[in-house]
């Protein structure tokens, strides 16, 4: 892709419901969970669909498609965003982390472990987004207050748990990550 000047791409606006994608595709290359990938996609295709359909990363979920529920949350250049609101044309050269990227070498990450231990997932639809939002919070603020945790997951809706166990799981992850003081 040209690095200078105007870049033009044509394609069909799409969401998963639109099975036929024809028209000019654009090349988008970026990193997902540490791996370099290149996809050909219509420029306004949502990253949620690029991840799920083109890359087979179906961890990120679609709840609303309107930025309200957070089930599609991913980390984009380290910041949590709703992937249903991000078009492919804005993703050349970015760094993406999805829920699939949290575990390392078959080992659950700390936040996944504490979600598991606290029973913070029931049906599991909100969980990938919750984990990403929680991870983003702990990256920026390793020892958040309960209020800060609530704010950090305010864009992630859960119909099952009533949030209490999710908040506890985040608190536990923060507590476990805390450097131990001498004698404790």
């Amino acid at each position: 892709m040209a690095r200078s000047g105007n870049q033009v791409a044509t394609g069909y606006c799409t969401r998963s419901a639109d099975a036929d994608i024809i028209g000019t595709l654009m090349q988008v290359s970026f990193r997902v969970n540490g791996r370099k990938v290149e996809v050909e996609a219509p420029p306004m295709k949502r990253m949620l669909d690029v991840l799920r359909e083109d890359l087979g990363l179906t961890g990120s979920k679609e709840g609303c498609g309107e930025g309200e529920c957070g089930a599609c949350s991913i980390l984009l250049n380290g910041e949590v965003v709703d992937s249903c609101l991000i078009p492919a044309c804005q993703c050349d050269g970015v760094d993406v982390i999805t829920v699939e990227g949290l575990a390392q070498d078959g080992q659950l990450s700390l936040i996944q472990q504490t979600f598991w231990e606290e029973g913070a997932a029931q049906c599991g639809i909100c969980t990938p987004g919750m984990l990403i939002a929680a991870r983003s919070l702990l990256d920026l603020n390793p020892q958040p207050s309960r209020e800060e945790i609530r704010t950090a997951i305010a864009g992630n809706l859960c119909r099952c748990t009533g949030y209490t166990k999710i908040i506890k799981a985040v608190e536990l992850a923060a507590a476990m990550a805390k450097p131990h003081r001498a004698g404790s």
């Binding site: 000047g5 870049q7 044509t10 069909y12 799409t14 639109d18 036929d20 044309c89």
Partner: peptide, 14 residues
Amino acid sequence: ISQIRVHSPRTLPN
């Protein structure tokens, strides 16, 4: 389904 043409200019003058 509608076809959308996307321009991604790299500079403000562009």
